[in-house]
Structure formats: C-alpha cells, structure tokens
Amino acid sequence: MSEARRIPFNNPGWAGNTGEFQLTEAQVRGDEYVGKRPPEGGHPSGTSTYPYMLAEKDPEAPLFEGAYQERFEKIRSRYPDARSALLPSLGMAQELRGHLSPETMEQVAQLLGLSPAYVRGVATFYTMYNKRPVGRFLIQVCTNISCSLCGGDDVLQAFLNNTGTEMGETSEDGNFTVMEAECLAGCGFPTTVQINSRYYENVMPKDVPEILERLKAQGE
C-alpha cells in the first residue's frame, strides 16, 4: 500500500480496521466527489448541509451578509414557512459564530419573525447548538453502548488527559473542548469520535495524541 493511500490512525471516516482498503481518506469521506462547495450554498436543495462547526469562528460575524445572505434566502425558499427554516438558520449562525449567544438567537428570531423565547426553546432542545463558546476543535466522543463495549470511556479519558481539560471545558490554548456524545451512528467502527463536523472512527486511546497533533497542524 502506497504512502498516499495510507489512512492514518486506524482509518478515520472509514468502516473498519481489517486492513483491506484500497481507497484514500478523501475517497472515503467523499471530498473528491463533493469538491469545494460555494459559500453561497450551491443548489438550494442542499444549502443546509454545510459544516455546523468550524475551527475558525467569528463571534461578531454579521447575520447574514453577502454569500451567507444568499444562502439564507435559498434555505428560506425551500420551506413553506419561515419557522421551518429555523434549524438550518441556527446551524448557519453557529457555523459563522461558533455558538449561539442570546444576541444570536434574538437576531435569528428577528430574521424569521419568531419570538426570541421561542427560538431559545428550540435551540436548547437540540444538542448540536452550542449555547456557549467552545474551542477551535469540538471533540465529541461516543460512549454509548457499542463504543462503550469497545472502550469508548478510555478514549474519552485519553482525550481529556491529552488536552488537559475537564469535560466540556476548553483547553487553555483555546484549541480543544472535549465532550461525551451519544451514539453517533458509527457503532461498527468503535470508538467513533466527532471533531467539529468530521467523524473519526476506530479511534483507540493510543491514536489520540496523533489526532490532536494533526488537528493543530492541519485543521480538521
């Protein structure tokens, strides 16, 4: 197997560790197929499928301007009413700002003609919306049944140890926030870890330092 095809640390984003793959990581993740998607959202059918967490965040980013405004309008056009566009709009606000502050919720409420309290009720129902700032990399380790059977708790502990953080707290350098996650639907490839929007699968405690180094060096 050539070096280019070597999939690092137990094949992130890939199903299994049997050593039988002939695909690159980009092929597995679909990066080649998807290509670079335009910031204004491309075809309206898929405008809400952008990453919900990015390493680079700007808590002051306007809601929404330029390409993002265009994306917002495309999203809005795909639903029969404004309320239905709330989840994708919150997702986009978080993509830009990194978390949903009270001000962000209020602005999204205004954009969609909803009450701020209503938006707060919805935003807090869903776990993917960060209600407070997180590090550049939000690391969510699955410890649910299948991963738990295969050592998910140890992987979680390894991330906590290697980042020197407590659960849910952000490391001093602002890089990492580690959280426990519920089942990420990667049960056959334990332990499944979600870092920002990307999945890392078959993660073992020994892989953790390498993953963290790669994140610091290359991003997700």
Binding site: G30, V34, S45, T49, L87, Y126, A185, R198, Y199
Partner: peptide
Amino acid sequence: YCRGEFFETTQILARAIEEAYEAGYL
C-alpha cells in the same frame, strides 16, 4: 431529514441531489 452530525454524508447526498437535478431526474 438528515441527522445533523452527518456532515460528510449530507455533503455527498447534497452533491448527488444536485447532479440529479442537472440530469433532469429532479
């Protein structure tokens, strides 16, 4: 209705839907 965590998956699906529109299947 895609699970929000499925970022890579939804990107692939979105691209496929876009292609299907281009090909006249949608």
